[in-house]
Amino acid sequence: MMEVLNNIGFDWQIALVNFINFLIIFWILKKWVFGPVRKTIAARTEKIQAGIDQAQQSETELLVAKQKAEELIKSARNEANQIVAKAKETADDQVAHAQDTATNEAQAILDKAQAQIDKNKTAMEKELFEKTAGLVALGVQKILGEDVTESKNAELSKRALDLLNQK
């Protein structure tokens, strides 16, 4: 075995030194190279992750704010609708009230006008009756050549008026 090893250049002293040198290289790389590189990568990953987390948090917050805003808008819309409905109701009431008042006032005016008309009619009828009576009396006087009494005149006038009314 030793012969084979010697043939391929085995020397326990060199092997031992090279073994120790490898351990030194291991220590150097672990402490000065791999460690700092790992730390740098970890720090960057952490920072990126923090950024992603923050972005996700912001997104969540934005979503919540959006939902809140939507709720507020919905609530405001409902409130506005309620106010509009109430205003419409009030307006309808006011319109109805105004209509009633106007109708009543119009009716009163109409009634008043009707009363005035009736009054005027009565006055006109009275005037017409008096004039008709005068005309009848005058006609009879002219036709018959005699005076008509006041009572006869009234009767004739009445009869003339009735005839007129019947036509």
Binding site: L29, W32, V33, T40, A43
Partner: peptide
């Protein structure tokens, strides 16, 4: 041995890399 010297040379290279380069690594 000359192979040992080469290992020492490589070790020094790694050490230089660690001290002068890797230590200055930034994010």
């Amino acid at each position: 041995a000359n192979s040992t010297l080469m290992i020492i040379f490589i070790a020094l290279l790694f050490l230089a890399l660690g001290i002068f380069v890797v230590r200055k690594f930034t994010l």
